[in-house]
Simulated assay, not measured.
Amino acid sequence: MILTATVMAVRLWDSPVINYAIAVFIVVALVYLAVLQFWVLLRTRKHLSEMKSAYTEIDIQRSELQVRNKDLTDSLNYARRIQAALLPAEHHIRRIFQDYFIYYRPKHIVSGDFYWFSERDNKYFIAAADCTGHGVPGALMSMIGLELIQKIINELKVDDSDQVLLTMNRELESAFFKEESGKAIIKDGIEMSICIIDKKTRLMEFSGAFLPVYIVRDDKLFEIKGDKKNVVQSFAMVSFNRSTFTLEEGDLLYLFSDGYADQFGGPENKKFMYRRLRHILLTISKYPLADQQRILDETIESWMAGHDQIDDMMILGVKPF
């Protein structure tokens, strides 16, 4: 029986019908595989074409962004040159003070901080200001501030420190207040400190809008604080206090914006703070002013240690006598 079944199976496989069916199956399978491979190839080519188009579009957009970024950077660099031209020139400052430094570090290319040095009628004028914001908005405000302080001191010949701030406030009110709406179109303000020093008596007048002045004498630091109000913070009737301090030979004055003290960094990512700023200024006050500027830069660089700069920085150091 087993032998008979085996013989029948062999004959069945030798049947032309079975062979034909097998051949048809193989052909169909091969055709299916070929079609499937062709379909996969088409899908792959389509996907590659889409990716190539996408990459081409990305390259085009990247090129456009690079052009726009270059145009923006070029514009900002030109704005920086304009801003630098408005600030007192170094040769002008050297005619007034032989011993000074200016640590000036914008957050972006242009700065919302500005400073002013001038001499008139036997008096020295030193000012430091911090406009609200940084970058382009702060820089535009600082250019307005520079033009106004030049006008107030040199043209209007205002000699009292509190009146300089008050006049600045009125001039900004005139520029930003619109009668039709009855509202100010700009509500941002300027933090500012100003010292006016009589060359003969060495009496210094100081007024500040938030910003103070530090005076170092005989390894001691004295602080005269500013009022807790901005210039142009309010267009209502405002006033500023005026303090006096008699300077001596070798006294050092430090005026600054809040950017240095507010910078985050250190091992715990905290603000530098005014306490540290007072300590470092008192510590380095015995060094030449050029070295003081370098130490201030190295100190804040070490403090930041990978953290982004959050605001414009400015510190002025002056030895009037």
Rank of each mutant, 00 (worst) to 15 (best):
A89F: 06
L277R: 05
Q98A: 12
L86W: 08
D219N: 15
T4I: 11
S181L: 05
A128M: 12
N154Q: 13
V35P: 00
A9M: 12
L172H: 05
R278H: 13
A184Y: 07
M314G: 01
S243G: 00
A9Y: 08
Y104Q: 09
D312I: 01
A236F: 04
F114K: 04
K70E: 15
E298K: 07
F206G: 08
P16E: 09
E298Y: 02
D59N: 12
L87I: 05
F97W: 10
R276E: 10
A34S: 14
V232R: 00
V110R: 03
G259H: 06
E50M: 07
E205P: 01
S161C: 11
E90R: 13
A5F: 05
E155R: 13
I60N: 05
I22K: 12
G259P: 04
F245P: 02
S53Q: 08
T44K: 09
G266R: 02
V238W: 04
D160I: 03
R94K: 15
N19E: 15
K286P: 00
H91I: 11
F176I: 01
H92R: 14
Q292N: 13
H47G: 01
M314A: 04
E50L: 01
L140I: 11
M273L: 06
K178F: 03
G266V: 02
M314K: 03
L41G: 08
S285W: 11
P106L: 10
R105N: 14
D130I: 03
I224S: 04
I102G: 05
M8R: 11
N269L: 06
L252F: 06
I152L: 09
Q263N: 05
L76Y: 06
L252H: 07
N19V: 02
D308P: 00
A127I: 04
F235I: 06
H47L: 14
Y32M: 09
N69C: 00
N69A: 11
E268T: 08
Y254Q: 03
V40K: 10
L48V: 03
L247Y: 12
V28A: 07
F256C: 01
T56C: 00
A29F: 10
P212R: 12
F176E: 00
A34G: 13
Y274L: 14
S111W: 10
Y287H: 13
I26C: 05
G138P: 08
M304G: 01
F272D: 00
C131W: 01
K199M: 14
G145S: 06
E180Q: 09
V158E: 11
S142H: 01
A21I: 04
R275Q: 09
L41E: 09
P88N: 10
